[in-house]
């Protein structure tokens, strides 16, 4: 099967500034890929370019074989689901209706779901442990619960590729690990591309990491092989190290 997402020598410029410079990446089914790097390294721009939300200045991007900017919004939504960095629910709709918005591309109305849509919504709600919160309004639940509701919305979309911008930001360690488990679970049906500032979580969750700095790839590969002290220092400007503590990877910066 062809790659779900391919960047070939891709560059992105925003306001005359190069934010992605000559990057190549293949994302295949079954992979969970973490984007790491300091603030402003280009993680968000890379994800937005993958969805065709920003144009490339050089190179090419293919989403399921096609240029994402040549696809209709609906076709794009059937190939990739996107969770922005600060997901919004401007109106305080219920958790269930928010998740149901993930079925938009299938023509579903959030309050009258067909059996197939309902099954997808129920499954996403279950995976994200939102069952008790279904009927709650989005302005009545905690920040962590909101994040999970938005993640469930992206899952309900059932696109082969999940693109998640900092899905664990603001979550407590237990919730972050629960999200990591969800991401690993997605590897069976598609691929996940997610960004995070939690190096240890990325190393534990992803099959492959991409370490960025100023729009360039500093290191790429299996977490333990790629995230060397030299690579971490080159990316973050601080000495850092991956260790195994009781079998789990942990990251320390000095």
């Amino acid at each position: 099967m062809s790659a779900l997402l391919t960047f070939t020598n891709a560059s992105v410029s925003l306001n005359m500034r190069t934010v992605i410079a000559g990057l190549s990446l293949d994302v295949a089914v079954g992979e969970v890929i973490a984007l790491l790097g300091p603030n402003g390294a280009g993680k968000t721009s890379l994800m937005r370019a993958a969805l065709g939300l920003v144009p490339l200045s050089v190179g090419q991007v293919r989403l399921g074989g096609d240029d994402p900017r040549a696809l209709s919004p609906r076709q794009r939504a059937l190939r990739a689901a996107y969770l922005p960095q600060r997901p919004q629910s401007i109106w305080p709709i219920s958790v269930e209706r928010l998740v149901a918005l993930g079925r938009y591309a299938y023509g579903a109305a959030p309050d009258r779901l067909a059996p197939r849509d309902r099954a997808a919504v129920d499954a996403a709600i279950k995976v994200c442990a939102l069952e008790p919160l279904r009927a709650r309004r989005m302005d009545e639940i905690s920040g962590g619960e909101k994040s999970r509701a938005h993640l469930a919305r992206a899952l309900a979309q059932q696109a082969p590729l999940l693109v998640l911008d900092e899905p664990t930001a603001g979550l407590d360690p237990a919730q972050a690990l629960a999200v990591a488990d969800v991401l690993r679970g997605r590897a069976g049906v598609g691929a996940v591309l997610f960004s995070t500032h939690d190096v240890a979580l990325a190393a534990r969750t992803a099959h492959r990491v991409l370490l960025l700095r100023e729009g360039r790839c500093v290191a790429e590969g299996a977490p333990e092989a790629a995230l060397t002290p030299e690579a971490l220092e080159a990316a973050y400007g601080r000495k850092g190290r991956l260790d195994r503590v009781e079998g789990a990877l942990s990251a320390t910066f000095f």
């Binding site: 919004p73 939504a77 996107y82 919004q88 629910s89 938009y104 919305r153």
Partner: peptide, 21 residues
């Protein structure tokens, strides 16, 4: 009307779930 529902998520996320904003 359906597009208005999608816009609950903000403009970019609305486009990402398949809405023609």
């Amino acid at each position: 009307a359906r597009g208005l529902q999608a816009l609950t998520l903000g403009e970019e996320a609305a486009a990402a779930i398949g809405a023609n904003v």
